[in-house]
Design a protein around this nucleic acid. Sequence first.
RNA 1: GCCGAAGUGGCGGAAUUGGUAGACGCGCUGGACUCAAAAUCCAGUGAGGCUCAAACCUCGUGCCGGUUCGAGUCCGGCCUUCGGUACCA
Length: 821
Amino acid sequence: MKYPFQEIETKWQKFWEEKKVYKTDLTDKENNLYCLVMFIYPSGAKLHCGHWYNYGPTDSWARLKKLQGYNVFEPMGYDAFGLPAENYAIKTGVHPKESTMKNIADIREMLKRMGTMYDWDAELMTCAPEYYKWNQYLFLQLYKRGLAYRKNAPVNWCSSCQTVLAREQVLGDGNCERCGTTVEQKNLTQWFFKITQYADELLDGLNKIDWPEKTKLMQTNWIGRSYGTEVEFKIEGHDDKLTVFTTRPDTLFGVTYVVLAPEKELVQKITKSEFKIDVDKYIEQTKLLTEVDRTSTVKEKTGVPTGAYAINPVNGERVPIWVADYVLATYGTGYVMAVPAHDERDFLFAKKFELPIRKVILQEGTDVKADLTEAFTEVGTMINSGKYDGINSDDGIEKITEDLAAQGLGRKTKNYRLRDWLISRQRYWGTPIPIIHCEHCREVPVPEEQLPVLLPYEANFKSDGGSPLAGNTNFVNTTCPKCGAPAKRDADTMDTFVDSSWYYLRFLNPNFSEGMFDTKLGNAWTPVDMYVGGAEHATMHLLYARFIHKVLRDIGLVNSDEPFKKLIHQGTITNNGAKMSKSKGNIVNPDDFIVNVGADVFRMYLMFMGPYELGGDWSDKGIVGVDRFVQRVYSMFEANAGIAKQAVLKDKFEIAELAEIEKNIYRKINATLAKVSVEIDHFRFNTAVAALMELINELKGLDECSTELKSYTLERFASMIAPLAPHLGEECWQMIGKENSLFEQPVWFEVDQLALTKENALVVVQINGKMRAKVEVPYNLPEAEVKVAVFEDEKVKLYTDGKQLVKEIYVPNKIYNIVVK
RNA sequence: GCCGAAGUGGCGGAAUUGGUAGACGCGCUGGACUCAAAAUCCAGUGAGGCUCAAACCUCGUGCCGGUUCGAGUCCGGCCUUCGGUACCA
């Protein structure tokens, strides 16, 4: 009979749900294991292939662990705030709350149809007041500690999304991560979280977590710590000083000019009146450029002189001060000493504006007098540097820094590329920022007992700049908690990455009302043992969550340093090489496959396609292979229905007592058992499935086995297939006569190590590195005897007779290599 | 430009520490079953050479070189594709 997947999948889903098989007892900390997949963004009503590819295999991993006896917690929830719902509302008039709730209801059903083992009692959604109340609480804790603050700064503005964006949400091409519109620069007063305060710890903590190296590297680069020196330059005719940051103080004698970022106020102060018109014009021009245009390496250098001069502290030299947009106000001090001879950018700038280029580091093997054709940026010998001449530039960095420090003209320092996290958004569908603006008391935090600040249902989404909430007078108008005078609520909402920065803690008890989360459970269950999600979050969610976890630790709410102990990224499934997306209309709909072959087959096929972390291009070509395999499994169990009841169950066989065909099967089932656990454990699902396919090929001879061995084999087969195809696994287990559900009373079998040892070894004989013969010898036969066997082989004789033996190499039980002349 | 990952049959992909390249699956070819087809089952399937056939030989893991008894795997130099980043002083 054809495998009736429809009926069987429904049957087990119902069973699991009714019996609450996947409800985790979180008070049981014995052998506990937290397996988490990044929660779902309910921007549509459907699960697409990417969701299945992400969730199915992760669930299979969790199921393996459950069968192996771990107390596994695998929750699922909804990252329910965010722009898509609001944009949808603008387009259709359907309120974000309505569309989101509808999507969630649909998605929940689909997730259940996948056959996942989520603990539905732990379900959460970030748009619920019970959840976002604690976002607000978190905000206030950060505010109290000076980690949440407001400042006016140049920020990224997306005119289509009508909101500011964090730097992480702007793509490399300068477009909005969400909608693809070119992002503009605007000066706005915005809320920031002071992630930079944790920069060192975020960097150093990377050594302690088991994450993909490339992800850690991305975070390392993103944080971008560099060690250097701050050097003070006097400004001619001013009391003000100018401090530059440099990683190359050894090149100080090569400074021929100094550059200020156009945004810096100092520019106005020092610019000589006859230069003022040009400088102001230049600053205006700079404002028109997007950050990407401005920071593009291919752009030709621009700049204007200010007419002012700075004094080089090491040699008292007078150097012109310029303004140029290649210097960024947001990095270092916003002032740069320019050393054209030893910095590529300065070199190009100096060439263009005919500023002097003075060589102070000599490249080994070059002439002192030779002109440079490009900047020499490496280590060399210091020249033209007064008392430092002749020393290695690396040592010069230390020496000059020390000398400057001694004179109070400089100091060792570090700098980061990381900037503070901009968290306010001028949008409706998010967590209201719990701040009240009072004319007298300025910004006043909402008292904790007044939380949550509820997001009102009414709002004008079709806003044209400014927050939609600003127009809702019922919401905005309030009284100051401090002085009682009429005041206004902050109308911005929080970046949804705030929601996802701590949700893994809330899952442990989404109904907890005494705090953000239950600290006792948090300490027992986090860090999360296994976290699975897309690599695109490397410098966003995955960095924010680490930051917030550390803050929570410092507040005393958790006792660990890191949120996610082990991290795995699923690959991306593309369609004809392109990322699947609604806008491109190239989404593959899983529904048809679920209807035609069932959830188990579809899940297993996604796993079988290739390595989990690589993803790949979508093709349904091979799905029949997995379907055939499932059919064969089903018929094999059908043919042996009730077998486990007909025999005394053994957990070990004496190999010597088995018939030849039984021996092979006994060996294979044990070898597969060993293989499957290791492969699934490492997220190598493709090879795990392949191993089971190999096994079923071997089981063609099953009919010739004793009833005992048949039961032994099928028990193990059912248990092994269960993580990968859970419905099928349960059904097979029941078919052979088991009374209990596999996942209700987990079973995973021990490997009989004796079955893995071989009687004979096939030794490959190579002559001069070429494979020439194979010799079967007893396993672990002494080398001398192997040699005899090898040289008895006709082909070996053919290739060695009459030749001089130079060397022989024997790799036990594997290779016998003979070198002849 | 810089950083990272990957290039293996017609296709998706296997291959502990260097040790029989191509597991497993798709597709294809032939056969069985069938009136026929589908489904299923069995056999074959990297390329080329030689042969009635088998045996056998040569070449083969992006390209060029190297180390080694032996390289898909290690080293050096390239090429291509995909991610990340982009004047960070």
